[in-house]
Amino acid sequence: MSTKDRKYRAHWYDGLTEGISMLIPYRKNKVYHTMQAKRARTGYLFVLPFILGFLLFMLKPLVESLQMSFSKVTLIPGAGYDKPWAGLLNYEYAFGVDPYFNQYLVEEISRMAINTIATLVLSFVVAVILNQKFKGRTLARAIFFLPVILSSGVLPGIESQNEFYNMMEGVAEAVANSSGVNLSAALQDLLSVSGVGSGVFDVIFQMIDAIYDIVMASGIQIIVFLSGLQSISPSLYEAADVEGCSAWEAFWKITFPMVSPLLLVNCIYTIIDFFMKNDNRVMERINEVMYKQAKFGEASAMSWIYFGVAIAFIGISSFIISKAVKTANE
């Protein structure tokens, strides 16, 4: 579309950016009069909200919270808070004194590692399926994106916090185990008796047991993979077909390499999403320490430890995935 099609009308925002950028002082140097400099100023204007917000509402609290984690915070009513330096005391508290933090941290990390892998595999498979042509595809897509709504915010945590629910789960599991209806447990027994490497199977069974959580957590990942799949030009498949490539080969030679860069994006998203979930027990513990016990310093230390672990995980997994993708595509 071109601007010629439309009748030119003046708007209140015409020349707004130009006007504001004129106000920004600049040195009377020739370099600053160039088109490039002008565009740089306009660019800065566009990102200005973010820069302001980042400095005010992100960097400042971030630095303060880091400070808090190293100091003994006591609230003074009406006048803010006092924070004398306390060294690593809060970190010692988190690891040594708090009865639950260590345990929850280890548990959540192992759960996260397994869930991330499972989420990536599942969302990729589902995206491939949803990209095919079949009857009722629109409906299936609509349903698969529902978890974006259903698993957001408070919704996933609220029912598991209820004691009755947990109790019922326990009862259901016990009943299923005793009557032998639980297929996965039976299979698990069978396989462990037959002596097949049990560690791997444990992981797989854990995934199967967590399938509901995994499906509920993979809405966005499916969307990302699906958009990647749709960007692959059909002519590639046509060419492969003409050359006698089977669908299986086409999948590994075309689909997978084309979509694999998105693996990294999805992996990072999954890890972050998992770390910030409401039903995450480390988060619950931090909230408890902060709001119920009002130990602000200790809670800050805990969340920094948690954040550090998250960053380490993201770093390691992105390193592995980018290496793997590179070698796979060579």
Binding site: V47, F50, I51, F54, F57, M58, K60, P61, L62, E64, S65, M68, V73, G80, Y81, I268, I272, F275, M276, M283, I286, N287, M290, F296, A299, S300, S303, W304, Y306, F307, A310, I311, I314
Partner: peptide, 25 residues
Amino acid sequence: WFACVVLLIIVPPQTIQTALYMNFV
């Protein structure tokens, strides 16, 4: 600045909640 955007994505808001809370009180 774009790295800051990425940082914004990966910092859990819970990390800064205390400080932010104090900030607005």
